[in-house]
Nucleic acid binder design. Sequence first.
DNA 1: GTTCCATTACGGTAGATGAG
DNA 2: CTCATCTACCGTAATGGAAC
Length: 307
Amino acid sequence: MEKNNKRKSSNKRFCINHHNHTLYAYKDHCYEVYRPKNKGLINKVVKAIIADYEIMLSHYSRVLVARIDLHPKSFSPTNEAITQFLEQQVKKLREQYGCKVMYHCAREQETSYREHYHVELMLSGHKIRHAHKLLSLLGIAWSQYSGGHTAQVHNPFCLVYRGNKSSLRPAIYRSSYLAKKHSKERNGTTKGFISNKYPPAPHFEPSNDLMLVAPDITYMKHKKKIDFKNLNENARAAITSKRHPSPHCWFETLAHELQFKECLASRTNELLAKPDNASLYRSRDHAQYDDHSLAAHEPKNGSLKIS
DNA sequence: GTTCCATTACGGTAGATGAG
DNA sequence: CTCATCTACCGTAATGGAAC
């Protein structure tokens, strides 16, 4: 009991509320992005970050995003050391997990005499589902490399799913923090944001944003919400009693495994709304939807279970 | 200290799909 | 057709915290 309370008080979770976000338009949709107290965000960086989410989601239907802060031992006027370190780690992780590894890194310096780096890594969510091991090893590698230290941020990772906007909202919000203008002024001519680039998957269609928002999944989410509202009090209580904040994953309202199961239920290869894209994202489970007497976005087993 | 239980961190496999 | 790759999904050992 006591431990639970301790955890709650010491583990403040990021939440999107009326005061801390602003809307950012990307293609056909709006996303909540971080609203700094002053100076706003660098538009180009926000755009690049969201575009990278699209690229990773074009390769993998599930993507793990992990956050860590790196503090070097001494000041460096250039990004040479951090770039070399990140490229080294990306190469290592690519070999270890056998997937593409994308990084975003924001160089910041406020009142300290040395800069620090906010780093974000993206990997295939099929190869890795939890960031603890990844971040611990990265931290060790960083202290060996630079003699500096790492700051493990609260709730350091999340999983995002192709076309599942509700999974992307908190992730994009959190990533947009890297785009804030504030505390980058002292960088001078040194870049305040560095990242590596991958081309999108060959089937990626840049004119739409189906990688980020799939109408079917949005429909299913909405339907689940309405179904939940229509349940009687006991049934609702049975579901909500199973919900509890995870100590590790950012923004989650469900335990990690429960969230995982829920996302499987609304998995992203339901992307059949536009016939042009139907063939690209078809899975074996989807054959049954070829009969259009059945709505493509209807859950397979009638009502969806949360657990 | 021991047991129980939830969660993590993958490993493995079958099936779908696309390239050649 | 074969082969390689990707995805969905199941299974399980390891781990850590809670309860006793």
